[in-house]
Computed example of a mutant assay.
Amino acid sequence: MDTLTITELDTEKKISEAFPVMNQLRTHLNEKEYMELVAEARDKDMYRMFALYDQEDIVAVIGFKPMITLYYGRFVWVCDLVTDTDKRSNGYGEKLLLYVHNWALENNYKSVALSSGLQRYDAHRFYEEKMEYGKASYVFKKSLHE
């Protein structure tokens, strides 16, 4: 029997329950900052979060937003994807990413894009080899308040 379910995190309670897993990726955020940023992104930027549950436990979380740019056209940007450290290599990230692929197709978006930190070699291998993503560009960042 399959005990896996994907659920949208659409309430403060559900979003808060996902913090321990999300914090494994976004280690710079405390729970208050996380809650504030998720609320603002949902309100202003169409950000959506989904969790993969194994029975009652969150094992992976994905956050994404639909976008339109001249370069990509209509696409979905994956902002966050993390599997609980103790649950990795079980196909959970793949299940969530495929869920987003299907969501994008159902909502008339043409592609899915994401960025991944330079040091995340295992993630790069996952995206390129397992999920067949191609490198499209470099992402550059300049901090304005240091």
Results as ranks from 00 to 15, higher is better:
D10H: 08
R42V: 13
L144K: 04
K110S: 15
V112K: 11
E36R: 10
A104L: 07
K142G: 00
K142R: 15
I15A: 03
F64G: 00
V38W: 03
R26P: 01
E132V: 03
V76N: 04
Y99K: 13
Y109V: 02
V100W: 06
Y138G: 02
Y109I: 01
A113H: 15
N107E: 00
M67D: 10
Y72M: 08
T83H: 08
E94S: 15
R74Y: 11
Q119C: 05
T3I: 09
L9S: 09
S143R: 12
F50Q: 02
N107L: 03
M22R: 07
L81N: 01
E33R: 09
G91A: 08
N102H: 11
K142N: 07
E36I: 10
R26V: 07
A51D: 06
F50Y: 13
N90M: 11
L96V: 06
D57T: 13
E36H: 05
F75P: 00
H101F: 15
N30F: 02
L25S: 08
G134A: 14
I68Y: 14
E94R: 15
D122L: 12
E106R: 12
E40R: 13
Y121E: 14
Y53T: 02
G117W: 07
D86F: 01
Y121K: 15
L70I: 06
Y53G: 05
G117T: 02
H101L: 06
P20I: 07
Y138H: 09
R120T: 10
T69H: 05
L81W: 03
K13F: 09
H124M: 05
S89W: 05
S116P: 03
V82T: 09
I68V: 14
K95V: 09
Y133V: 06
V38P: 04
M131L: 14
Q24V: 06
V112N: 05
K130T: 15
V82C: 08
D2R: 11
E129C: 04
S137E: 13
T27F: 09
L37H: 03
K13L: 12
K13P: 00
S111F: 08
L4M: 09
D10Q: 04
E129Y: 08
Y138D: 12
D43A: 15
K95N: 04
R74M: 08
E17K: 15
P66M: 10
A136P: 02
W77N: 13
L4I: 11
T27K: 14
I62K: 02
L118C: 04
S16H: 11
A123C: 08
L97N: 06
R74H: 13
I15L: 04
Y109E: 01
R42E: 11
T83A: 06
L70A: 10
K44G: 03
G63C: 01
E128T: 11
L37V: 08
S116D: 06
M131G: 04
K87Y: 05
Y127L: 05
A113R: 14
V76E: 03
L25V: 07
I58Y: 02
M46F: 12
D80C: 01
M22W: 11
K135C: 11
K130W: 04
L114I: 07
E12I: 05
R48H: 12
